[in-house]
């Protein structure tokens, strides 16, 4: 396998895509949004339970490729118990990581999310990696309309 493919489909990515974490609807959600990628038909929903300013619980459901599932799964782990502002800041970091590559961000601070760095070598797959994040942002901002990557 070529090295950029190895970077894209890292062990952690494959593992999260096969066994996604928090793959469920949060029962007492008070924020939620739908995300849709019209290019490929992928769709997912993100449900969040906020306590004040803090994301106490988060889940996602839907269908998508390995990259979008892994990104969504990793996202749920990364933003749980974070404040809204921290989650939005993380969104910006991940967006920079998948569009511009690891040199654009402080990779250390991203923890497990750093495995998404391989995406930047695959411009056609950036939308897969960012769908869950756009959806989360819409949920946090209380936008009820579904978000689209187009």
């Amino acid at each position: 396998m070529s090295s950029d493919l190895q970077d894209l489909y890292q062990e952690v990515v494959l593992e999260h895509s096969k066994r996604p974490r928090n793959f469920r609807a949060v029962p007492d959600a008070n924020r939620q949004a739908e995300g849709y990628n019209p290019l490929c038909g992928d769709q997912l929903s993100v449900t969040v339970h906020m306590e004040g300013d803090v994301i106490r619980d988060i889940g996602f459901q839907g269908q998508g490729c390995a990259i979008s599932r892994a990104s969504a799964s990793l996202m749920t782990g990364a933003v749980k118990d974070r404040t809204l502002a921290e989650a939005v800041a993380l969104f910006e970091q991940v967006h920079a990581l998948v569009t511009e590559g690891p040199s654009a961000v402080d990779v250390e601070s991203l923890g497990k999310l750093a495995v998404l760095s391989g995406v930047s070598e695959f411009p056609a797959r950036v939308k897969c990696a960012s769908l869950a994040w756009h959806t989360l942002r819409a949920a946090l901002e209380g936008r009820s309309t579904s978000v689209s990557t187009e």
């Binding site: 396998m1 490929c40 490729c65 390995a66 056609a124």
Partner: peptide, 11 residues
């Protein structure tokens, strides 16, 4: 997922 198939074939 077909997108993953397409990406690997492309490589």
């Amino acid at each position: 997922h077909p997108h993953d198939v397409g990406t690997i074939l492309d490589r």
